[in-house]
Simulated scan of single mutants.
Amino acid sequence: MKLAKTYTFLKKDLSLIEDALEETVYADQPVLHDASTQLLKAGGKRLRPVFVLLASKFGDYNLNRIKNVASSLELIHMASLVHDDVIDDSDIRRGKPTVKAKWDNQVAMLTGDYIFAKALQQFTEIDQPRAHQILAKTMMELTIGEIEQIKDKYNLDQNLRVYLRRIKRKTALLISSSCQLGAIVANTDNETEKALFRYGYFMGMSYQIIDDILDFTASEKELGKPAGSDLLQGNITLPVLYAMENRHIRHELEEAFADTGNINPNLMVPIISKISKSDAIAKARGVSDQYLQKAYDSLSLLPDIQAKEALANIANYIGNRKI
């Protein structure tokens, strides 16, 4: 089953949010407009708006209010991707040129800043102070996660706790906040809000771990970028942590990272291949499955409505996706 088929009943509402996104990223300045529009048209699963909409189904579903939250969170996600591409010096995302590749780093950073600002402007329509506090906290944690990733590049002396804390900040909190803010704007009760937040957090953790696995197991065509790109950029993910339990692989990585300013991609190719064929992949998937089960458990506390079934189906898709 394709992901979109798990929430076909949201198709009309998602179309309205897509229209809102196009309207929001409009800029009078030509370069900003073109760069922002290119990013929007590059596609994406639009998962964060989907989570906002589904969470809101458990309360007072008012699309005029909810769409502001949904589009704001997607814009924040988009802006973080633009900044990521500059930090990682990435020329390709989803098989297409990045903003920094088509223009330059300065334009990319300013485009990201512009989109962040537009997200905050959109969110001012929400008159619930607690929602603004949660969004601000999420954005701060997202930034800390990015800084931590930069700090730990090429650092082979990391542990599971450091990795999990980093992906919590970089990925899981934006997804959990999407669920929580959807619940808040729909005025759900506290228990429902907590259950949706927990579902989003555990889903986000599983989602990022699967992403890190696919970086080794999917093809360049499927990824839209070279396999093992994260490791080539010095990012130590869960499969790498487990693979380094093999002292030979760790030694090869130590040699490859001896001069981080001059990494030889040819040395990395066999290492990436070894990791992709090692038991590290199964171990990492096992951790993802644990988070996935916790996401399912969180759903058990919610009433049996169509949105709950959709959330369960999304979890099933994410946990078993091949790309």
Rank of each mutant, 00 (worst) to 15 (best):
K137T: 10
E252L: 03
R65A: 15
A282K: 11
A307S: 14
L160R: 10
R94N: 14
Q293G: 15
L40Y: 08
E193K: 10
Q306C: 06
E222Y: 09
Q121V: 06
L196E: 00
S36H: 08
Q38F: 05
G286F: 08
F51W: 07
I144A: 11
F116M: 01
M1L: 12
K221H: 05
L173P: 09
Q128K: 13
D34Y: 05
A227H: 11
M244I: 05
P129S: 03
K57N: 11
H83L: 14
T192G: 01
I150K: 15
I167H: 14
I209Q: 02
I314A: 04
K274P: 06
L301G: 06
T192Y: 00
A307H: 12
G224W: 14
E148V: 08
L241I: 05
L16F: 12
Q290W: 15
G228N: 04
K41G: 02
D304C: 06
F123Y: 15
L196Y: 03
Q149A: 07
Y296R: 05
I209A: 04
P49K: 04
L73E: 03
R198G: 00
D85R: 07
I144P: 02
S298M: 13
L54F: 12
K322T: 14
I236G: 06
P303R: 03
V31Q: 02
F216S: 14
R48Y: 14
Q122S: 10
A131D: 01
M78P: 04
R250D: 03
A131I: 02
A186W: 11
S72Q: 01
T188V: 08
S206I: 07
E23A: 08
G200S: 10
K2S: 10
N68A: 15
I305R: 07
A131P: 00
T260I: 13
P265G: 02
L267K: 10
L75E: 09
L238P: 09
T260R: 09
M244E: 03
A35K: 03
Q122C: 11
P303D: 06
M205E: 03
I92K: 11
Q158M: 13
A4L: 11
R169M: 09
R93S: 04
F58D: 05
N262V: 14
Y291A: 10
N262C: 15
I92L: 15
K151T: 08
R247N: 09
A136I: 13
N190V: 04
L231S: 00
I318K: 00
K283W: 02
Y61C: 00
P97V: 08
A55Y: 07
A295R: 01
L311I: 11
H132E: 15
N62H: 13
F202H: 13
D19S: 13
T98Q: 08
L54E: 06
I236D: 08
R94A: 12
D113W: 08
D297V: 04
D215E: 15
E146W: 00
Y114E: 00
S15C: 05
